[in-house]
């Protein structure tokens, strides 16, 4: 049989040398290596102790910049600060909160790689609920409502008119209530004791054929076929969301599921504690991220959407010509 069969370590016998000399010498060497001056003596070290290694890679260097404390730092692969006087290669202990590990070892905290606190860019969230379906533990909760896309509210002739969505089968639609403008004109929002009047009736679109659309009204008045031109496209938009950190296991499946650059895991591992379970519910204010990160994400998402919109119009134009 060609397997590697061992019979123990070559020096593994219970003799006098192994009784006290060998183990005590090992521990003494370890202790002396941390002492000034003596720690540099060669007989205490094998040739692998305290050898500086390049640990920071180019991508990390680009990310953190050359002013970062880790630039120019010599690291050893482990955390033994075996060379004193005056090499300090890698700390044994990170003096949190005065020092932070992401400052000392930035390669461990590449954004997007580390499962830190969840960060959400609410502005670009479209309430698609993919994150909720992805979560194994039912930690994400979201309340949504159907709203008309704000771009739809423009008049013909406005520069941004016509850039809203389109009616889709399976989507939502809204029809303005006829009496709305009359009521709204005379409604005193400041002094009235009633809610503001609703502008639209909402419906789910079942089928579109040419000019006609079959819709099911959300107020329960049944299915009706109406003129498409009287309908505006609507969508589900997010009202509020919460993450229950008490259940979250930081698996990252929700962040992977989001197609809209709105949901990601930050590098932060602080600030998620509380004294009661309710304090662990992270709502919008507790999932905010640093402004630079926020802006970066919003830009990414808007670029994506603009790209998609441009392609759509190009295809439409091509179809119109053909």
């Amino acid at each position: 049989m060609s397997y590697k069969a061992n019979t123990g370590h070559p020096h593994a016998t219970p003799n006098f040398r192994n009784l006290i000399i060998r183990p005590m010498w090992m521990t003494l060497k370890t202790a002396l290596r941390t002492v000034p001056f003596i720690g540099k003596l060669r007989f205490l070290k094998n040739d692998y102790h305290g050898k500086p290694t390049v640990m920071v890679d180019q991508a990390t260097m680009d990310r953190v910049g050359s002013e970062h404390p880790s630039a120019g730092q010599k690291f050893a692969p482990d955390r033994e600060t075996s060379q004193v006087m005056p090499f300090v290669e890698r700390p044994v202990t990170v003096m949190y909160p005065y020092e932070r590990l992401e400052d000392l070892e930035p390669w461990l905290f590449v954004p997007g790689n580390y499962f830190g606190r969840i960060g959400i860019v609410w502005e670009t969230c479209t309430a698609c609920k993919l994150c909720i379906h992805a979560c194994p533990n039912d930690c994400l909760h979201m309340t949504t409502e159907v709203r008309v896309n704000v771009l739809e509210l423009s008049e013909d002739g406005d520069e941004w008119h016509g850039y809203g969505g389109e009616l889709e089968e399976g989507g939502y639609a809204a029809r303005e209530k006829e009496e709305y403008h009359d009521i709204a004109a005379s409604f005193d929002l400041v002094n009235a004791h009633a809610d503001a009047p609703q502008q639209y009736d909402f419906a789910e679109v079942i089928e579109i054929s040419g000019d006609k659309a079959t819709v099911r009204w959300s107020d329960g008045s049944g299915i009706e076929t109406v003129d498409s031109t009287s309908l505006k496209p609507a969508e589900q938009d997010i009202v509020s969301g919460q993450i229950d950190l008490g259940r979250c296991m930081f698996c990252g499946l929700c962040a992977e599921a989001c197609p809209f650059e709105s949901f990601f895991m930050t590098n932060e591992y602080d600030g998620m504690s509380g004294f009661s379970r309710e304090e662990l519910w992270m709502d919008a204010s507790r999932t905010r991220v640093l402004p630079a990160v926020h802006q970066e994400r919003v830009d990414m998402e808007l670029a994506k959407r603009a790209e998609k919109e441009k392609e759509k119009r190009a295809r439409k134009a091509a179809r119109a010509e053909a």
Binding site: G8, H11, A12, R17, R22, T30, Y48, M55
Partner: peptide, 26 residues
Amino acid sequence: QRARAKLKLFLNRIQEYEALFDESTV
């Protein structure tokens, strides 16, 4: 690069634990 450095150091370090186990009569 980091994994290679750490794994090579680890291979060298194993003999230190062995010294406290295999080469310890107790």
